[in-house]
């Protein structure tokens, strides 16, 4: 079973990102469970969402305390919250940032970066001041973690967004192609 935690801010589409990823992996026959941090959300406040992916039905219903990987939709969260809390050794940290993976030092973890903000603005997803980066970051996630095929993700993106399905899919594709991974 793979467990991933998403860190974002209210309004970036963090919960929707986990839902679209769930749709995508489910399309390839996997079992999946996606959920937000249970409670109330506010625009701009730190938000977390979770996903479990398995070859068998997922019975466990508790929260995720020790994810294998994390996804950070807003790089300013790295200072604001302990994003690596409980993260298992060797896990990936996928960050939306213009910086290179080498610019980060996360000890036992691997870093991948993608400029999802630039991509979201390019495809006019959200506004320039508050771009919605969730679909772009998913392209990077699928490339780095190989959870499903890109085509499957793009289908899930087109079906899962309320507006601009083609632009969102293009953004995911561009992020898939432009994600930078730390040298192994």
């Amino acid at each position: 079973m793979i467990e991933i935690r998403f860190h974002g801010r209210g309004g970036q589409g963090t919960v929707v990102a986990s839902k679209i990823l769930a749709d995508a992996v489910s399309k390839e026959g996997k079992w999946v469970q996606a959920f937000p941090e249970f409670g109330v959300e506010r625009r701009g406040a730190p938000v977390t969402a979770f996903i479990r992916i398995d070859e068998q039905p997922v019975y466990i219903k508790s929260k995720i305390y020790q994810p294998q990987h994390i996804v950070v939709l807003d790089p300013t969260l790295i200072q604001a919250v302990n994003v690596t809390e409980g993260l298992k050794e060797g896990g990936w940290i996928i960050i939306n940032t213009e910086r290179k993976p080498e610019d980060f030092n996360f000890g036992p973890y691997k870093v991948a970066t993608v400029d999802a903000t630039r991509i979201a603005i390019k495809y006019r997803l959200g506004s320039k001041t508050a771009p919605i980066v969730n679909t772009a970051i998913l392209g990077a996630v699928v490339n780095v973690l190989g959870l499903c095929r890109l085509d499957t993700l793009l289908d899930a993106v087109k079906e899962g967004v309320p507006v601009k399905p083609e632009e969102n899919a293009e953004a995911a594709k561009e992020a898939y192609e432009s994600v930078r991974k730390e040298e192994q």
Binding site: A22, Q33, F35
Partner: peptide, 12 residues
């Protein structure tokens, strides 16, 4: 059904 644990949790 349980609040959040099912109500807001996505499953197949």
């Amino acid at each position: 059904l349980d609040a959040f644990v099912l109500s807001h949790t996505y499953e197949v």
